[in-house]
Lab assay of single mutants.
Amino acid sequence: NQASVVANQLIPINVALTLVMMRSEVVTPVGIPAEDIPRLVSMQVNRAVPLGTTLMPDMVKGYA
């Protein structure tokens, strides 16, 4: 099963993503693939993302 990107903490809106904010985990439904974590660094989410939430492509500005 493919690992997805999961919030490692509350990720506020309009804050640049850092490695420490994200972890990889096998979850259902599948979200952004874990291998895209380096690409996500410095991008921003378009809504607050609670701890443990799977990041979906539509949550990250400029990802999709």
Rank of each mutant, 00 (worst) to 15 (best):
N1T: 15
Q2I: 14
Q2P: 13
Q2A: 09
Q2F: 11
Q2G: 14
A3Q: 11
A3V: 08
S4Q: 02
S4E: 00
V5G: 00
V5D: 01
V5Y: 02
V6T: 06
V6R: 03
V6A: 02
V6Q: 03
V6Y: 02
V6L: 07
A7W: 03
A7G: 02
A7Y: 02
N8H: 09
N8L: 06
Q9Y: 09
Q9R: 14
Q9E: 14
Q9F: 08
L10I: 13
L10R: 10
L10E: 13
L10Q: 12
I11Y: 01
P12F: 04
P12W: 04
P12A: 07
I13D: 13
I13W: 08
I13P: 12
N14T: 06
V15E: 13
V15T: 15
V15W: 12
V15A: 13
V15N: 10
A16M: 13
A16E: 09
A16P: 11
A16V: 08
A16H: 13
L17N: 00
L17R: 00
T18F: 03
T18Y: 03
T18Q: 14
L19C: 06
L19E: 13
L19S: 09
V20L: 13
V20Y: 15
M21V: 03
M21D: 04
M21L: 04
M22K: 00
M22G: 01
M22S: 00
M22A: 00
M22T: 00
R23A: 09
S24R: 14
S24E: 10
S24Y: 07
S24V: 08
S24C: 07
E25T: 07
V26S: 10
V26C: 05
V26R: 07
V26L: 08
V26G: 04
V27I: 06
V27G: 03
V27E: 02
T28S: 13
T28G: 07
T28P: 01
T28V: 12
T28L: 15
P29W: 03
P29N: 04
P29A: 04
P29G: 03
P29F: 04
P29T: 05
P29V: 06
V30Y: 10
V30C: 05
G31C: 03
G31A: 03
G31K: 01
G31M: 02
G31Y: 02
I32H: 01
I32G: 00
I32Y: 01
P33I: 09
P33T: 08
P33M: 06
A34N: 05
A34G: 09
A34F: 06
A34I: 06
A34T: 06
E35C: 05
E35P: 09
E35S: 15
D36H: 15
D36P: 00
D36N: 13
I37K: 05
I37N: 00
I37C: 04
I37E: 01
P38K: 11
P38Q: 11
P38T: 13
R39I: 07
R39H: 13
R39K: 15
R39Q: 11
R39F: 09
L40N: 00
L40G: 01
L40R: 00
V41C: 05
V41L: 12
V41D: 02
V41I: 11
V41H: 04
V41R: 06
V41T: 06
S42D: 12
S42K: 12
M43A: 07
M43E: 05
Q44T: 15
Q44F: 12
Q44R: 13
Q44H: 14
Q44P: 11
V45S: 08
V45H: 00
V45W: 03
V45Q: 00
V45C: 05
V45K: 00
N46L: 11
N46T: 11
R47I: 10
R47Y: 09
R47L: 08
R47C: 07
A48D: 15
A48Q: 15
A48L: 12
A48S: 15
A48K: 09
A48E: 15
V49M: 04
V49N: 02
V49E: 02
P50T: 08
L51S: 13
L51F: 12
L51E: 14
L51D: 10
L51W: 12
L51P: 11
L51I: 13
G52I: 03
G52Y: 04
G52T: 02
G52V: 03
G52F: 04
T53G: 11
T53K: 12
T53D: 12
T54C: 05
T54P: 06
L55Y: 02
L55K: 01
L55P: 01
L55S: 00
L55Q: 01
L55W: 02
M56Q: 11
M56K: 10
M56D: 04
M56P: 02
M56L: 09
M56E: 06
M56V: 08
P57T: 06
P57I: 05
P57Q: 09
P57A: 15
P57C: 05
P57H: 11
P57L: 04
D58M: 11
D58P: 06
D58N: 12
M59S: 05
M59E: 02
M59P: 01
M59V: 09
M59Q: 05
V60K: 01
V60Y: 01
V60P: 01
V60R: 00
V60G: 01
V60N: 01
K61T: 14
K61M: 15
K61G: 08
K61Y: 12
K61A: 14
G62Y: 08
G62W: 07
G62I: 04
G62N: 11
Y63A: 04
Y63H: 06
Y63E: 03
Y63C: 04
A64M: 11
A64R: 04
A64K: 05
A64N: 13
